[in-house]
Amino acid sequence: MNRILIIDDSKAMRMIVARTVRQAGFGDCTIIEATNGAEGLAAVRAQAPDLVLCDWNMPEMSGYDLLEALNADGKVPPFGFITSEGTPEIKIKALKAGAAFLIVKPFTVNALQDAVRGLQAA
């Protein structure tokens, strides 16, 4: 895994996710950041990340709308949500749209590690 794209409108959350990515053993990866779904869509198209870690609620374009746009492109990179939205309905919606996992905040290093390793094993 070379490039990880972190998409969140909160700078604080991007910092936390980047730190957790390093703590989870992916410190050698290049971290790319985007602040909403629209920026994230442009980043996916331009930089072909190996993993996208995306918030759900964001202004301009939500994480779910981004995933739908990537589905329309026909090219969805490995994609996981990290979000405060933890209801079963949201999880089902995310997985049906092609997300590999949904991690609910507050989350631990182990949760991210397990999700990404599960993705790599699949």
């Binding site: 604080a12 959350m13 405060s84 933890g86 905040k105």
Partner: peptide
């Protein structure tokens, strides 16, 4: 972000 995380927990 703190209140966002708490809000998600409240919703659940």
């Amino acid at each position: 972000e703190i209140v966002n995380i708490v809000g998600g927990g409240v919703k659940s």
